[in-house]
Amino acid sequence: MSDPAYLDLKELTLAYGKTIAVDRLNLPIRKGELIALLGPSGCGKTTTMRAITGLLKPASGTITLDGRDITRLPANKREVGLVFQSYALFPHLSVFENVAFGLRLRKLPSAEINRQVGDGLALVGLSRFHNRKPAELSGGQQQRVALARSLVMQPKVLLLDEPLSNLDARLRLEMRTELQRVQRESGVTMVFVTHDQNEALALADRIVVMKDGRIEQLGSPEDVYNRPVSRFVADFVGFENIFSVENGRLHTQNGPVDLSVPVPPETSGLAWRPKMVRLGEGRFEGEVLGVAFAGGTREYLLKTELGPIKAEMDAAAPAFAPGSRLSFDLPTENAATLQRM
């Protein structure tokens, strides 16, 4: 974090009428970074992105890009690119003209435009599609045209709105690889918005988890996945067994339970993924309510004195039948320690 921020959001507040959508957000982003804004709908991630583009004017706070305050700069002068979730290609223009649109506004000589559009379309693997209309392309191809259209402008920051959500699973993997390659080759700073944790984990250098217009956690994918700081983040990244900690003891629906290992004093909660629950041995007892085969694993729902527990076990291990009783453990040393509940 010693690098100076290339794109710097300071105390950024955005409102729709009286509703505050983003509340005093501070986010420094380094040059060449790939950042994911992750959160459920309504968390302010899209609003933040629109503020960076200039399509939305902040109520207060500043946005600095490459050493220049762009807070009041109109959207068409910002050198910020955006790949829309709907792609937003110009339906009346060919693929070539879509990509050339911004370059023509810059009044470049036509040989230069031809070269840059050609390079742009080659970069996204659409060299043979110059004369097609957007309606004649598949969704994935349209998205790559939108990407090329933004990239040829050599924006200082490229923003992507839910870049993978409209694609099917196979295309999603392909596009993900494509985005990473484009980012590597062009070195452009990228910020993308997503509600899908897998997308964020797979793509981003750093993830910004947002909730109610604020940053809930900012960290590497490993941090967010393994060390969530709050109940919200833990829940979002798949910790399904979450308990608060009071006075060094686990707070459950049937009263406090002692921990096997002491936890740091600032801990306010502990969380376990289903696969972290140890089944078949341990200090707790439960009854199997349901079991589901999930390929490599079996997923269990247990009724226990702690409340409902979700657990997961290797499918190669013998299965526990519904209705059977078994002992289990929530190993404190494996748990994620939450600072906020």
């Binding site: 583009t53 959207a75 937003a88 290609l89 110009f90 649109f101 911004g102 933004s150």
Partner: peptide, 18 residues
């Protein structure tokens, strides 16, 4: 006509009128 194509044009450097 989706209005986001107008936003796309603006972000490519076009004024609102253009």
């Amino acid at each position: 006509l989706r209005s986001d194509i107008e936003e796309a044009a603006v972000l490519l450097g076009s004024s609102r009128l253009a």
